[in-house]
Design a protein around this nucleic acid. Structure first.
Lengths: 237, 237
DNA sequence: CTAATAGTGTCTATTAGACATTATGTG
DNA sequence: CACATAATGTCTAATAGACACTATTAG
């Protein structure tokens, strides 16, 4: 049999195949806290519990897994987050009552104010403070996925400025530092933090100032070249 | 409808679902080169081309994706590699002629001598020098997966000693350093390399010596605690 | 002025790079 | 002895930590 005949007769449903979906751990920074987006499940299984935004691949509409996760995140937030990266794929017999199931899981970051949908007005979507994530009844293995995403984000906070994508387009250095501190779980020396930012030349000073109390702070935007930048030396864990 | 009824009636084949498989980029160190294991495809599509060891999940036999990749690697090498880690999941419409397809891809490391199957005696399995990988006709997107795995391994070589799992149980510091040099693609200062190993206390001196030419070298084994160790400062890329 | 937050100066500590030197085996 | 490879000593360079200091706003 040649390849053409083989392909013409190929039936993807001839074999037992696992259920496959995508999930996203979408973080943001709001009110000095790291928060994660949760969605209340409308359907079985685990109906009524909270879980990560996600769903099945639509073979007709999605050209790739990234299309699927972008589509699902847009459904819930109204926008496409500026940072989406694959986290881990979990697949086993136990995680879903429907049977052998695989979830391709992503980490995403979004500025709180960038949500065009007002999350407060929708009962089945909410931002949950990471400090309180243990108190929520979560579906499937989503608590583990969130913990994994948080741990990876922590590592990235030590050697990159990727957390910046959880902030608005322009932001103060103090805000960026505090976000890093929340993610890492300890305070950072202001001088160390600013020195490495300046040396790596990752930010642009907009010239604008942001005043709340005390001396006005410069507002910065992130250079496109900052994406993927890794400092050669980590901050202390 | 309650959850029990829902699950009783659930049909995983009611929806169009992608093809799902696992692949592994298995590296080893042999004759001063980094090599990757390739398998000649016995079936369509891309029959006759070389590709990564891998295959479909067996819902009956495999409890998890890790079971699948372990099973597939054991089939080809006769052993379970001491290091297996998830690399990336690729999923799109184009990568496989059979249709929408997902591959959960792993990186694995194995000592060359640990292969209980003599690869030289099997025509459809071979170790290929990474320096010559561009010359092999590879199936699907496997060249990209190999490049991705190599890049990740390079990063790890800069801040960990994970490449050590591509060496035999006991090894010399010179061998470990040279392996790192091959992976990173540049030479490393001997003193720097040894200093950080000593300080992190990751190895055990077996007391045995290995002599080829010149002063005999001490043989070391890796401590279990070395798994996952990250140096705070990278070697220069 | 004071309070509060932004931003800088400077010393120390740690650790990688460079490279010379010593150690230990073979023939 | 010469030669080869292993192992160490030591100086320099780069960069994070600590912490005191100055700057700029509001009221």
């Amino acid at each position: 049999m040649n390849e053409k005949t083989f392909l013409a007769n190929y039936d993807p449903k001839a074999f037992d195949i696992p259920i496959v979906g995508v999930d996203a751990v979408l973080f943001t920074y709001h009110e000095k806290c790291l928060k994660v987006l949760l969605v209340q499940r409308a359907n079985h299984p685990d109906k009524g519990k909270w879980g990560l935004p996600g769903g099945f691949v639509d073979l007709g509409r999605d050209k790739s897994l990234e299309d699927t996760v972008v589509r699902k995140l847009k459904e819930k937030t109204g926008v496409v987050p500026p940072y989406i990266e694959q986290l881990i794929t979990v697949g086993n017999k136990k995680r879903d009552k429907r049977g052998w199931s695989i979830a391709v899981c992503y980490t995403a970051l979004l500025a709180h104010q960038q949500c065009s949908i007002n999350i407060d007005d929708v009962a089945d979507v909410q931002w949950v403070d990471m400090a309180e994530i243990g108190q929520v009844a979560l579906a499937f293995d989503h608590l583990e996925l969130i913990r994994e995403a948080r741990e990876r984000l922590k590592q990235k906070a030590l050697y990159s400025i990727e957390p910046v994508y959880a902030l608005p387009k322009s932001f103060t250095l103090s805000a960026l530092q505090h976000l890093h501190e929340v993610i890492i779980g300890k305070s950072i020396q202001k001088k160390s933090f600013r020195r490495r930012l300046e040396q790596a030349d990752l930010l642009i000073d907009t010239g604008e100032k942001h005043t709340v109390l005390g001396r006005p702070a410069s507002l910065y935007t992130v250079k496109p070249s900052a994406k993927g930048h890794k400092f050669v030396r980590n901050l202390e864990a």
